[in-house]
């Protein structure tokens, strides 16, 4: 039971980070980022592709990338188990790199369609993300592809039985920081102009805003944030397996969460993430029981896809504003007006 709760909390934290970043782009800014998975994958790529290569080079390990990575990860894990500070240092180093790489990936991926309307924007973002995913999946030399590569355990200093809890706490801290950051950032004229962009881009163009720049900056920021989730995820799983960063889990599900919780409302998105992860983890955790109980002649994961697809359609149709409605942005001067002229 504790195991299940920890699992739920860990993935809750990851989905909070990714969905909040999508809420920035889509919920506030109206950018249909159907390439969300790309930014999470970028975080994983930083750890599996860059950190591993640095370590292989540092330890002077020979051989093919995948087995050299295993050895490098093993050696680093040994070192970290004696030196907590090195582990945390590596983590911060990777987060920093992931933020930079995520920002670049986000900005680049929106560049081709930054001037176009929502449909072209969405299609191009999806296509770029899919192609990068496919290449990283089939080419095992970049970051292990479908075989996967090991990465060091940056919390190796924590005794084995507490390892998962430690990662969960780490993930929750990251999620909390992202939440506070975005709440502060978006309760401002920046949040206002993003909403304006979502409602009518021509109008804000006529009022002096460079829509292309706004989109590029917002995508850079959103992707930088989501890349952090990728870093936390791969350290937790001690490996990068590219399949784990597919479009369903890291593009579609975050959209489902934003819609469920309420687009444009960060609190709603956190709530949405919680409900979604609870459901998903229960299905994952009890998949054999479900299969047996319902006499399913197939794996429960297919049922999960169908259920979440239907759930998304139902929300779109019957509750497009989500559980918690969007609220106006009350900056301090507006808030004081609420008292003087209600």
């Amino acid at each position: 039971m504790v195991e299940l709760i920890t699992l739920i909390l860990f993935f809750f934290a990851l989905y909070v980070i990714v969905s909040l970043s999508l809420n920035l782009e889509f919920g506030y800014g109206g950018i249909p980022n159907f390439g969300k998975a790309l930014s999470v994958l970028t975080g994983a790529l930083v750890v599996g592709g860059i950190l591993n290569r640095l370590l292989i080079w540092y330890f002077g390990i020979e051989g093919d990338f995948i087995s050299a990575s295993s050895l490098a990860a093993y050696r680093m894990t040994e070192i970290v188990s004696q030196n907590p500070l090195i582990g945390l240092g590596i983590f911060l180093f990777c987060v920093t790199m992931a933020v930079v790489a995520g920002a670049i990936a986000g900005a680049l991926s929106i560049l081709p369609s930054a001037k176009l309307k929502g449909d072209y924007l969405g299609v191009t973002l999806l296509a770029i993300s899919e192609v990068v995913y496919l290449i990283l999946f089939y080419n095992t030399e970049i970051v292990g592809g479908y075989y996967g590569v090991s990465v060091p355990d940056i919390l190796a200093f924590v005794p084995g039985e507490y390892r998962v809890y430690a990662y969960t706490v780490l993930a929750l801290i990251c999620a909390l920081l992202v939440y506070l950051f975005l709440e502060k950032l978006l309760n401002s004229p920046y949040g206002r102009i993003l909403r304006g962009h979502r409602e009518n881009e021509d109008l804000i163009k006529a009022f002096g805003r460079d829509v292309m720049k706004l989109r590029i900056k917002t995508m850079a920021l959103g992707s930088a944030i989501a890349a952090i989730a990728g870093v936390v995820f791969v350290f937790y799983s001690s490996s990068v397996v590219v399949n784990a960063f597919n479009r369903v889990e890291w593009t579609f599900y975050p959209f489902l969460i934003v819609l469920l919780g309420g687009k444009g409302n960060n609190k709603g998105v956190v709530l949405g993430a919680f409900i979604f992860v609870l459901l998903k983890m229960l299905i994952d955790f009890y998949k054999f029981d479900i299969k047996y109980l319902l006499h399913l002649p197939f794996e429960a994961v297919w049922l999960q896809y169908i259920v979440f697809g239907i759930l998304a359609l139902l929300i779109l149709c019957y509750k497009p504003e989500g559980i918690l409605k969007e609220e106006p942005i009350y900056t301090p001067p507006i808030k004081s007006r609420l008292k003087t002229n209600p």
Partner: peptide, 28 residues
């Protein structure tokens, strides 16, 4: 004319003017 429908009347007026708080680095 399509006002920014989900935004308040006040917000609709405020958004007319460019604002230094719209820069991500300032907004924080």
């Amino acid at each position: 004319p399509e006002p920014l429908k989900s935004m308040t009347v006040l917000e609709n007026v405020l958004i007319g003017r460019k604002h230094s708080g719209e820069e991500i680095t300032n907004a924080l």
